[in-house]
């Protein structure tokens, strides 16, 4: 495992699994495709940290990993599916959510996790995000928000704060950005949380929580991109990002998502904002069909047989 994978050893003394020197016995290994290492992420990138948290969440969730599938779109975070030792799908740009929708509906015993970036999920894939949330599709969406299109060289994205310099905003971003957690809540998500890669324990706990929660769940993880975003904006390296997150983050569980918008250097409100129970898509479907068709309704059996 490369250095970048474990680049945020926040307190190795408290948590030996975070110690990069300890990687020979790293307990997250069973959750990763070790034959695909080293990964492609840059030193200081936060995506590996989130994957680490996800692996730990999977472990503590006690789920049968043969029944967990992961779906990614395109981009740096889009590569996560390729490293997860699960049934994993690296789909097209922006379309991880509709792919996951089909996967979940055809094989409802799967726990389907969408793992992708801010550009993928909210620009090219934004329409799918709001509609899956509206339907309360039983999928778990983890958005690693590095505030930029990193894979393509650091262009402005839908979550890039104003005043930031990017490859396509050399004079500074002037368009307003999305407040992702507010958007998720407004669209109907059952669960909405935001953490940063500094908050590894809380993030892992949130991830575990959504693995046991029915309905459309959304976790935003702010994550540094030292190579592009931070360099262009003179925000230092990966460690500086951790310091920044530590300094400006405020944990406010239950905060109104409308008051959680992000700015270039202002406060980052983190926490679990929404946790509500709404009937999910399959429940609504079954309810409606049973009500209208009664015994004529045949419970969906979508998978085909071998012969």
């Amino acid at each position: 495992m490369s250095e970048a994978m474990l680049d945020t050893p926040l307190d190795p003394a408290l948590d030996p699994t975070l110690d990069p020197m300890n990687n020979a016995t790293n307990p997250v290994e069973p959750f990763l495709r070790m034959d695909r290492m080293p990964h492609i992420w840059c030193p200081g990138c936060g995506i590996g940290t989130t994957v680490n948290c996800f692996a730990r969440a999977l472990e503590s969730s006690k789920l049968d990993l043969n029944k967990v599938a992961i779906v990614s779109g395109i981009g740096c975070t889009g590569r996560v599916a390729g490293y997860a030792n699960l049934d994993s799908f690296h789909t097209t740009h922006g379309r991880a959510i509709p792919f996951a929708t089909g996967l979940k509906l055809s094989n409802p015993e799967l726990q389907v996790v969408v793992y992708s970036g801010d550009g993928d999920l909210f620009a090219i894939g934004g329409n799918h995000f709001i509609h899956a949330a509206r339907r309360n599709m039983d999928i778990k969406v983890i958005c690693v928000n590095n505030l930029t299109y990193a894979m393509t060289g650091g262009q402005t994205g839908p979550a890039t704060p104003t005043e930031v310099i990017s490859a396509t905003s050399p004079y500074g971003v002037f368009e307003p950005s999305f407040n992702l957690v507010q958007l998720a809540e407004a669209a109907g998500a059952s669960y909405v949380a935001r953490w940063t890669t500094y908050h590894v324990k809380q993030l892992a706990r949130s991830m575990e929580e959504v693995l046991h929660k029915k309905g459309f769940c959304f976790i935003e993880v702010l994550s540094p991109c030292p190579t592009l975003y931070q360099r262009r904006n003179k925000m230092g390296d990966g460690l500086d990002a951790m310091k920044f997150y530590k300094e400006v983050s405020k944990v406010r569980n239950g905060a109104s998502t409308g008051e959680c918008a992000l700015t270039k250097s202002g406060e980052i409100v983190v926490g679990k904002f929404v946790d509500r129970d709404r009937p999910d898509y399959m429940e609504l479907l079954n309810r409606q069909m049973t009500a209208t068709l009664g015994e004529r309704y045949a419970t969906p059996e979508v998978t085909c047989s071998e012969g």
């Binding site: 089909g102 996967l103 979940k104 509906l105 055809s106 094989n107 799967l110 979508v302 998978t303 085909c304």
Partner: peptide, 8 residues
């Protein structure tokens, strides 16, 4: 295509 990989 998600559905096909789910077995449909």
């Amino acid at each position: 295509q998600g559905a096909v990989w789910g077995g449909a």
